[in-house]
Nucleic acid binder design. Structure first.
Lengths: 225, 225
DNA sequence: AAGGCTGTTAACAATTTGGTAACCCCTTGA
DNA sequence: TCAAGGGGTTACCAAATTGTTAACAGCCTT
């Protein structure tokens, strides 16, 4: 079983939070709830959900503000965001879309329809590319786009460096033997020297700034936070 | 919620009509189905779909005939048309493209691949369908007027240059692989050399005066302010 | 038909990346 | 303690990739 898809749901009405939250969990999603805009922002940064649902009218920060702020962060540029509102007027509709939201749903709405809208949106975003995005703590590795995001900054890795990091991070904690690394990153055909791996490991450690790759002497390397 | 994109899908085999139709709807499109060439023509005129998928072998009128007839009408001169056929031979391939089709897909094909081809085609043609004005800092990209405004001055980009910039700027910060760029700007059918992208990138950088397009070596390009 | 603009390709320059060797340091074990 | 083995670091060169320029063909306008 793959890890569950995480959805952050923010609304200031506890009843709605409960009902929708319950239904989302029943659909098989992992749900993180927030009861105001500030919390939505903080919990998003903390949990890095795959989908974010924001009520527009919320204390401290409106959904629109939260959306705007999230879109500034590299990590949330691709995350689908749904705006939810009781207002059915054009104004908030347009504002919501301008803020960078991907869909706009007006309350009241049956949970059934809401669920199907959410499912459709997730399908749409998870389809293109095999999107096996790796998220560990505040690091995100997107193999489809060759991007590594650490906290709020993007790190530029060269191709081989990226492939190597992706491999190690694909199974955090697991030790990869030097042989394994060679065959998976360089293939069985190419024959490269022993020091090549070290050199690339070094370059990664250097660019990342933090030491997330541990050496197991005489064995290989592993990714560890 | 923005209005759904309408797709007309014509095939004389009910099973295929059902399966593909179902998948298209699951992708979030509004689907109009036709079971022969005449119906495809009539329903196209009636509903004005954003994309038309035509099986070649159909009763009353073949897909090629329908395509030809549609292209006579001003309304359908720009509409992307996809030819679908069980015949895998060159003859119908060429005929299909000659008839004014924009893409040619041979059956059998996995629905997944079909969907991604259709998505790519729609993205490519999205000029008038979606036509969102992109504003980043003091740069404005207006697909309707086909203009780029940087601060006070207007910049004249050629068609391909404009399409390329629009694509990159549509998702600032995101890396587009060279393959993606090729398929979205040039399409899957046309084959152009490797240096073509570079040359256009260069022209854009030159005309813009500022360096807002970043190179990710071995991978692709991204827009970044 | 001429001229200008656009899109593409080819050729070469510049840059980046990948791989190797040499050297250094650390750990281990006799 | 010292030698051996393994990994870390650096410099350097070759290969791959991209940047730049120029030339040319196709198209549209005049």
């Amino acid at each position: 079983m793959e890890p569950k898809i995480k959805i952050l749901f923010a609304d200031d009405e506890p009843d709605i939070l409960d009902i929708i939250g319950y239904n989302l969990e029943k659909e098989g999603y992992e749900v993180i709830t927030a009861k105001d805009g500030q919390q939505a922002l903080d919990l998003s940064k903390l949990h890095r959900p795959d989908l974010i649902i924001l009520d527009i009218m919320m204390p401290y920060k409106t959904g629109i503000e939260v959306c705007h702020l999230l879109r500034q962060l590299p990590d949330f540029r691709e995350t689908p965001i749904v705006m939810l509102t009781a207002l059915n007027d054009e104004t908030s509709h347009i504002k919501g879309l301008d803020s960078g939201a991907d869909d706009y749903i007006s309350k009241p709405i049956s949970t059934k329809i809401l669920m199907s809208r959410i499912n459709a949106l997730l399908r749409r975003f998870h389809k293109d590319g095999d999107s096996k995005i790796i998220k560990i703590s505040d690091m995100t590795i997107d193999p489809n786009r060759f991007m590594v995001i650490l906290g709020e900054q993007e790190i530029n890795l060269a191709k081989k460096e990226f492939e190597l990091l992706s491999l190690l991070a694909s199974k955090p904690g697991r030790v990869f033997l030097r042989n394994e690394i060679l065959s998976m990153v360089w293939g069985t055909e190419v024959i490269v020297g022993d020091r090549t791996i070290d050199v690339h490991i070094r370059k990664i450690r250097q660019k990342m700034g933090i030491d997330c790759i541990k050496t197991i002497k005489g064995v290989g390397y592993k990714f560890e936070w």
